[in-house]
Design a binder for these strands. Structure first.
Lengths: 218, 218
DNA sequence: TAGATTGTTAATCGATTAACAATC
DNA sequence: TAGATTGTTAATCGATTAACAATC
């Protein structure tokens, strides 16, 4: 598990890029597409692309031709487990949480948003509608109960304010959720004493991105 | 410029972590803090931390003691250019844009939000208030004029819908903005023919993060 | 066939980890 | 002094790039 984690992180990121690029490109599904062409649309070198496919045990190309676009999409989809998807809850039913949850990308990836959690009285018990689906808003203190009744909840998307971050993170981990995508301003890491548990945290942290950008400026 | 880009990306990410961790920890500024302690709060190894400091030419530690917390913060702040900060515009004045712009992290990092841009008639000409500051909302077609009058605008934060992404990205690049933080669902890369320009794009892309998380689950 | 593109190995490059002398 | 921690070098590890035989 840890090994998989360590080895593949970058490969997974890159094949996500290939997948996205192929999905949104306009060519028909049955056309051949070479690694050089994928390089052109992703910016990732053709050597790297072939190396990644080799690493993943995929030899689906045809010499002189390239890869059939549809086959490639299907294979990558399989590796990324997109057919299985995931059940997700959103912590924070404010602007940020509602905005992200409304992205159309979720349904296309079989990611099912099961509930919002918040602490504001005026929100609890209400619903938020996304594409004809009404998603309930619960109190954060009810997360344990919800998760045990709706197991497995795979991922929690954190969209609360900086002040609330540590508190909700604790509750999410305590509820047994193994995947966290963190959109709060605060960087999170595995809680002390749980470094070896198979919790996966991704910090999509505006603060860090801004440091990067500022650094580049000068 | 390219070299700097290549060499330092990871180091910058890590020192951003150190910086954030030191800022939010509760110890007084004049206390000594060892690389082992920074490891404990960041999860990054003490060897790595000392290596990074060495790489950056910082030798501000004292044997047997560690680093004075306040000194360390100041040095990292200098490297990250936080004293200079950046002028930023937000593309998209919807829920996502307003939510991100409201984060308190901007002012603490000298990031000045100068304007929103949108296409919705009912928003254009209005203002959005953040901490007693009224930030104007302009039409996206006025970006060129705005940028040339308010030069330099360092960064554009993209928060539009997937459909609008390519269009606004083009306009942002055409306006001469060199830094892009992309919060739309679509992955962006340097436009064809501009691969060598010093445009810096950071894709904080929920789609990619979700792929990662889903992949970990199985 | 000739040309193009894969799959795969080998070479290079870079980043992390380990180690330890210096020293406060 | 003895113990602890840095700064720095060397060793290891892993990832990317280059190259090319296989072959359609």
């Amino acid at each position: 598990m840890i090994k998989k984690n360590k080895i593949n992180q970058r490969v997974i990121r890159r094949i996500s890029y290939y997948y996205e690029a192929l999905l949104k490109d306009s060519l028909p599904e049955d056309v051949y597409i070479s690694s050089a062409k994928i390089e052109a649309i992703t910016g990732i070198s053709n050597n790297q692309i072939r190396q990644d496919l080799f690493y993943l045990g995929l030899s689906i190309g045809k010499q002189k031709k390239g890869y059939i676009k549809g086959d490639m999409i299907r294979e990558l989809k399989g590796i990324l487990n997109i057919h299985k998807g995931a059940d997700l809850i959103v912590i924070g039913a404010g602007k940020l949480g509602r905005a992200l949850a409304s992205y159309k990308i979720f349904s296309a990836r079989n990611i099912r948003i099961k509930a919002f959690f918040d602490i504001k009285d005026e929100l609890i018990g209400k619903e938020y509608q996304i594409d004809n689906t009404h998603i309930p808003i619960y109190h954060i203190d009810d997360i344990d109960e919800f998760v045990s009744k709706n197991s497995p909840i795979d991922v929690a998307l954190l969209t609360v304010s900086e002040d609330a971050t540590d508190m909700v993170f604790e509750k999410v981990v305590a509820a047994g959720i193994k995947g966290v995508v963190n959109y709060t301003p605060r960087i999170l890491q595995k809680p002390p004493g749980k470094e070896n548990e198979d919790i996966k945290i991704i910090n999509d942290c505006l603060a860090i991105s801004l440091y990067h950008i500022i650094y580049q400026l000068y």
